[in-house]
Computed example of a mutant assay.
Amino acid sequence: MALTDLPVLGMLRTRMQWAQARQGLIAENVANADMPGFKPRDLAELRFDRATGTAINASPGLALTSPAHLAPPGQSEAGADAKGAKRFEIRPNGNAVNLEDEMMKAGDNQSDYQLAASLYQHSLTTLKIAIGKS
């Protein structure tokens, strides 16, 4: 078993991959802020099973089990949620993107990613010290 196969490191990698996918959706929302009829999307919150440390799919229904699979109708990413977006302001052209909300989500997402990356790096450093490589 490789050191990088530890459950804690796997959870941190999964969290970073989730943050990366979420950043792509946030960027897509911002890019389409002026497109008539565009509805913003976001990923469902990532949760882990306490016993196994594996990610739990928070969205009911169909889920992607491989990147090569086609996404369910209305979703381009696993866990993408078009209905979960807050719709406080919908413009007359049907666009529901609120740039302030998207920028807040992007900042929070960046902080989450940096935290996971920092924990991952520190965990690897600690493991190196434990096995005698510094």
Rank of each mutant, 00 (worst) to 15 (best):
G24K: 13
K105Y: 00
G53Q: 03
Q75H: 10
K39G: 07
P92M: 02
S59D: 08
A106P: 00
W18A: 09
G94F: 04
L62A: 14
L99M: 05
G24L: 05
N98Y: 01
P60G: 11
G94I: 09
V8F: 14
S118A: 08
Q121Y: 10
R50W: 05
G79C: 04
S118N: 08
S59G: 07
N98Q: 12
M104S: 05
Q110G: 04
E100Q: 06
K133A: 15
L46E: 10
R87G: 12
A44D: 10
A71G: 02
Q20E: 14
M11D: 05
A106E: 00
L124F: 15
E89I: 01
G132S: 04
G132T: 02
A68F: 13
Y113T: 05
R22I: 07
I131V: 15
N57I: 03
R22F: 05
G94D: 08
D101P: 00
A85I: 00
A106G: 04
N93P: 03
A44F: 12
L62E: 14
L12D: 01
W18E: 11
S76F: 02
L9E: 08
A96T: 07
K128E: 10
L9W: 02
M1V: 15
F38T: 00
G107F: 00
V30M: 06
M103H: 02
G132M: 04
I129T: 14
D5H: 13
Q121D: 13
L3V: 14
Q17K: 10
